[in-house]
Write a protein that binds this DNA or RNA. Sequence first.
DNA 1: TCGAGTTAATCTCAGCGTGAGGACAACATG
DNA 2: CATGTTGTCCTCACGCTGAGATTAACTCGA
Lengths: 243, 243
Amino acid sequence: MASEAEFLKGYDPGAYPAVAVTVDVVALTIRDGELCVLLVERAEHPFAGRRALPGGFVRGEGLDDAALRELQEETALGKVHLEQLRTYGDPGRDPRMRVFSVAYLAFAPGLPEPRAGSDAAGAAWVPVEQATGLAFDHDTILADGLDRARSKLEYTPLATAFVGDEFTIGELRQVYASVWGEELHAGNFHRKVLSVPGFVESTGATTARGGERGGPRAKLYRAGDAQLLHPALLRPAREDGVR
Amino acid sequence: MASEAEFLKGYDPGAYPAVAVTVDVVALTIRDGELCVLLVERAEHPFAGRRALPGGFVRGEGLDDAALRELQEETALGKVHLEQLRTYGDPGRDPRMRVFSVAYLAFAPGLPEPRAGSDAAGAAWVPVEQATGLAFDHDTILADGLDRARSKLEYTPLATAFVGDEFTIGELRQVYASVWGEELHAGNFHRKVLSVPGFVESTGATTARGGERGGPRAKLYRAGDAQLLHPALLRPAREDGVR
DNA sequence: TCGAGTTAATCTCAGCGTGAGGACAACATG
DNA sequence: CATGTTGTCCTCACGCTGAGATTAACTCGA
């Protein structure tokens, strides 16, 4: 029986049908109280001229690194939360060849306008309700990403990835309201956030002045060290239908 | 500018470095009240002789179909729940070439002994605590799969995938106890399961006789049509540590 | 045949988190 | 200065929770 070293020496990677692996990123941010996703306009075939999620072929790097690279090609970003969403591999989802796409989900605080990347005619933050008719199966990927984001707000401190290093409880509440698409009771939200150990910790400081239209100075907080929220901030008013 | 059809005609899939995509399956079942995972012993290099998760290269099929095929090569199974876990693609995780593995999670009711498959010297159900030292990065994949399974029990009717078509509340409680590794309060569990709309529905029948060591005949239920549990069956006694 | 042990199913009770609403002070705007 | 807005805190009623006790049905061994 051949040793493992001898086996590997005689192994021919080209003996199998060619497949490719890409990463596509669902990058979310909040602009003017609205949940937005980063889209590019494809410059090349296939789907030239159509809007798509930023992404590209994986090179000699790890998957997480590839997703980060693709994201940085489109927009200048500082702190960003990145996690794998799932992988899409139906035969025929890409007309060129068999392509598997590992989708990622990214969250970042409010960002400036993106810059055009190499393989994209333009990039822009688009409100999620207007992000339809995307190339490939990106409509499906986006929908899956939104589902994941909405449910992760409930039981993880993910919302802190959407705001700056220091933030007020009101800003945090705006994040939940924007992602969930519904208003939240300010008093109850305040009580619940502060009652979850490790969610936020006080900086002792307050904002320099009150809100846009009045009100007292709000206390400032930063993200705590919790990885999971106990108890969770459950999302209200779900109909007990077929879910 | 060339049309999309002309572009595709001149496209050469072989112009990129060769990569491969595999599926690996974390198949879980409960045998004698113990949570077990399906493992195979690898017959060929690399990692010949080591235990591994069942899996193999994806052919011209979809990812879900590939996972189902790999599973059926190892064990005879009837009803099975299958879902994608995540994708592992670190360079170097397979010594042959760049291999991306799409991991799947499978749940099935108590099954008979598995059969040996094509590329496996043998297959066996192994209690999860004894499933260590696996080939490739399968230790990591298994750990991720167990995490997912444990948390999905809380908010989905997944536990019904571990039992037969008709089951008692006590059998369902055994599933939760086995997967979570802790005993549950029988009275509270009973009340909570029946209070969740769509989780289980009564068949009207009861078991033919009482339990092994006595007790009344238990009522029989089958799985309901709920996709998500409201309210969730939260897992008790989590320490509020660094989670 | 009868008692002991086991189990399914139900009930009770104190405690906690929840949603809803209100109170109040601090602040911006006109 | 008057008015409206906002952050923070409080109260209250309701529902779910965990823990324990209770009842009835059943198996097994003496």
